[in-house]
Nucleic acid binder design. Structure first.
Lengths: 150, 150
DNA sequence: TAACAATCGTTGGTACCCCCAACGAAAGTC
DNA sequence: GACTTTCGTTGGGGGTACCAACGATTGTTA
């Protein structure tokens, strides 16, 4: 019956397959790591963006974090419920909300940073330091290209 | 207002972020490419697995393609509805179904192969030939490691 | 200034991939 | 014969990503 459970070469040869598969493992590690501190990917992305660029409207936040506006609403709701973020109406432009990182949010961000550092180590374990920079360089190149033409 | 729409360095520095983001682009290309010939990822994976290993039970198919048994049911339903696959009860083991690739299915697989080849080209455009093999080597290494310890 | 266009936040829905729990039916094992 | 395992199936959930539409507000411009 040859009941091997190894993948077809049709798949293992495709770069897109390798990418999405490894990304799936990476995603699982990230999701689990963040879940252990009651967070998920969107939360970190929002907090990190706020920390780096300062308070912003949801629209600007979405553009910078790459999160869809409609998904951002729920993410901010969850963050606000946890007291990590504050959402207040913008007095200068009454269409907007101003989202601000709280002190608690900044502490949580530090926790998430640690968690994610651990995850990176788990993810890249089999690679040498040189290989890791190789990988990030190549991925960054791909990302830059596709970010441009979109 | 500095309304740049570029991502925070907090994110761009994380390998897991680079991976999942590039994978997102790759996934979009794959999804669109396959959708243009009325297919999706699971379909290709099933067809390719059948082509390489021959007729098999759904359980074996799931193990080899990495598709969850519960998801495989729907995928085979869709493939069978398109006449690309045949599902017949196994006479030797009446718990099993034997899934077989049809001639139409084999032709469709060829079409999908072409589509995906195009996608690989789109995906890897900014990389040289050497860089492409570098990338696939690194990804394969990561994948092998994480497949083991799971 | 009045009409039009664009932006912002929100809601609700879709798609894909991945995973889990449970079940009846059929096989294998002791 | 009881027990366990496998197989196919159903139903559900979660996370990421996207689209369409809407009221409200702002801007542009004729």
């Amino acid at each position: 019956m040859t009941d091997d459970d190894t993948a077809p070469t049709r798949l293992t040869g495709l770069p897109s397959w390798l990418l999405t598969q490894t990304a799936a493992y990476a995603g699982r590690l990230v999701t689990d790591g963040l879940a252990s501190v009651d967070a998920r990917g969107y939360h970190f992305r929002v907090l990190a963006t706020l920390d780096e660029y300062g308070p912003a409207s949801q629209a600007a936040l979405g553009r910078r974090s790459g999160i869809h506006l409609s998904d951002l609403v729920a993410a901010i709701n969850e963050l606000a419920a946890r007291g990590l973020v504050e959402r207040a109406p913008d007095l200068d432009d009454r269409r907007r909300n101003v989202v601000t990182l709280t002190a608690t949010g900044r502490r949580q961000l530090a926790t998430l940073d640690e968690q994610l550092a651990t995850v990176q180590e788990q993810l890249l374990t089999p690679l040498s330091a040189a290989e890791r920079t190789q990988l990030t360089t190549l991925l960054a190149k791909l990302l830059a290209y596709h970010r441009m033409s979109s």
